[in-house]
Design a protein around this nucleic acid. Structure first.
Lengths: 202, 202
DNA sequence: CGGCCATTTGAACATCGTTCATGACTTGCT
DNA sequence: AGCAAGTCATGAACGATGTTCAAATGGCCG
């Protein structure tokens, strides 16, 4: 059998990625396998390796799609120039996304490349794009053009929010009186920004 | 062949865990397999299942050992009653540990339990023990006995530090001018604590 | 109609987690 | 001492996995 390609008008690669994403959303990264993808799309396992080098590449590309969707959702909240509020909006949107896409989002951190492998540029660019949103929101707190400090603060805060969301989704951060992750993120952002204000001025 | 148990004076379970930890330290969670453990300790794969229910249990117990070691290292830095300094000391010790034990520590977050499974109590207790250290260090910033707020702040800060260390080890947080994770953690703690001071008082 | 060639296959290899009937040994009792 | 009971370890077996690649297929062009 050959020449099937045109079936859905979508390229085979996209069909594979769509099926893969579906699997991860349903069963987590552990449920993903070349054979399961093949089963769903009605191809044989070998076919996947005609399109991608290996499963890691498939995973990485699914992740890229997730990052794109996250970026799109964050884009819905336009910064208004008030750092705390803008950052809280971003943080909440981020948290909402991680909960609405828990398994897909967990994948980004459960998955690790084999030893030698490097994170591809097109992946790193997507991370930077997300960070740029945080930088934009936080920038008013710093002297104009102090890009180094802005970049650091954005990464610190972003990583912090990520840590909360991460531990929260994995349920590794419970407290007797279950404080919602949302409150924790508000707490982090509010206090961090307040702290910045004591040392830094517009 | 039976009755080998006493060989190293250590119980078989401990031998398995030691071998497992060695494997993860060398090759990461992906390198761990029942068969590889068996190979190293000179037993057959089946033996491991006489001691543990499944590999997840082995992993969880290795993780518990790592948490114990981390706790021991954090214990070396006794709090002096100055929150910012105490917290920075904790944060740096934490970061140092994660870098000295990168693969073992990454395991804690790469590994996820199958769908139904719950995190065991003896595991959760170890997390709480770590958090208690942060609570102790941060407590002076709050009104005596305000345990709820102390608990929340400790978790917020701890998760934040975790996020930085996590993204840093995974190399997912680079900035043009590579800011060291150590500076980022100092930055987070300093500003968060300063922010707390503006709203909260002793 | 014939042949080229991109596309797809599926068997094959080495690995994995897990189970469990079988066997080998120790121990304790008579 | 001899035997039974009980403990511990085995390793083959099952159904999975990622990955490779020679072979088979079928659409297209001449």
């Amino acid at each position: 059998m050959a020449r099937r390609q045109e079936q859905g008008s979508k390229a085979l690669g996209e069909i594979i990625l769509a099926a893969g994403e579906e699997i991860v959303a349903e069963a987590g990264l552990k449920g993903l396998s070349a054979r399961e993808i093949a089963r769903r799309i009605g191809y044989s396992p070998g076919t996947i390796y005609n399109v991608f080098d290996n499963l890691d590449e498939v995973v990485l590309r699914i992740e890229a799609g997730v990052l794109d969707r996250l970026d799109a959702e964050l884009g819905a909240t336009a910064p208004a120039g008030r750092p705390r509020d803008d950052l809280v909006r971003l943080g909440r949107a981020y948290l909402a996304f991680t909960h609405a896409n828990a398994r897909l989002w967990s994948m980004l951190f459960e998955h690790t490349l084999p030893d030698g492998a490097e994170i591809p540029d097109w992946y790193r660019m997507r991370l930077d794009r997300l960070l740029a949103r945080v930088e934009t929101a936080i920038a008013p707190l710093f002297a104009h053009g102090d890009q180094a400090r802005i970049g650091e603060a954005a990464r610190v805060l972003w990583a912090g929010v990520h840590g909360i969301a991460s531990l929260s989704v994995a349920d590794k951060l419970t407290i007797i009186t279950r404080v919602p992750a949302r409150d924790m993120i508000d707490n982090l952002i509010t206090n961090y920004v307040a702290g910045l204000a004591t040392s830094q001025d517009v």
